Computed example of a mutant assay.
Amino acid sequence: MSDGLLVDIHKDLTWLYDAPPLLADTTMMANFNPADHRSHNVLSQEWRTYPCAPAYRLGKQFEDVVAALIRNSPSTKLLARNLTILDKKRTLGELDYLMQQAGGQILHLEVAIKFYLHHPQIHGLSSFIGPGGRDRLDIKQHRLQTHQLPLTKKAEVHQALLDLDLPFPTHRAALLTGYLFYPYRTYHTAYWPKITELHSDHYKGWWLRHSEIEQLGTRPNSDTYFVILPRHHWIAGLEHQKNPTPLTATELKNQVTGTYSPNMIVEAKEDKGRWQTISRGIIVKDSWPD
Rank of each mutant, 00 (worst) to 15 (best):
G4Q: 09
L6I: 13
L6D: 10
V7A: 03
D8Q: 10
I9W: 04
H10N: 13
D12C: 11
L13D: 03
L16W: 05
D25T: 15
N31Y: 11
F32R: 04
A35G: 06
R38V: 13
R38A: 14
V42A: 12
L43G: 10
L43A: 14
T49L: 11
P51R: 13
A53W: 05
L58C: 06
V66G: 01
I70R: 00
L78Q: 07
L79Q: 06
N82R: 12
D87C: 08
K89A: 08
R90W: 00
T91D: 00
L92Q: 06
L95F: 01
G103N: 09
L107Y: 02
L107H: 03
L109N: 01
E110I: 07
V111F: 03
K114Y: 06
L125N: 04
S126A: 15
G133A: 05
Q145F: 04
Q148D: 07
L149S: 02
L149R: 01
T152P: 00
K153G: 07
K154M: 09
Q159Y: 07
A160M: 01
L162E: 10
L164E: 08
L166I: 02
P167E: 03
T170Q: 09
Y184G: 03
Y184W: 14
Y187D: 02
Y191G: 06
T196P: 04
L198V: 13
H199Q: 10
H199F: 12
H199D: 14
S200N: 12
H202D: 08
K204I: 07
W206Y: 10
W207Q: 02
I213T: 15
E214H: 15
Q215R: 11
G217F: 02
T218I: 04
D223M: 05
Y225T: 02
L229C: 06
I235N: 00
A236L: 01
E239I: 04
H240W: 03
L247T: 02
T250V: 11
L252M: 10
Q255H: 13
V256L: 09
P262H: 10
P262S: 08
E270Q: 15
K272C: 12
G273E: 09
R274K: 15
I278Q: 15
R280N: 04
V284A: 04
D286Q: 10
S287N: 14
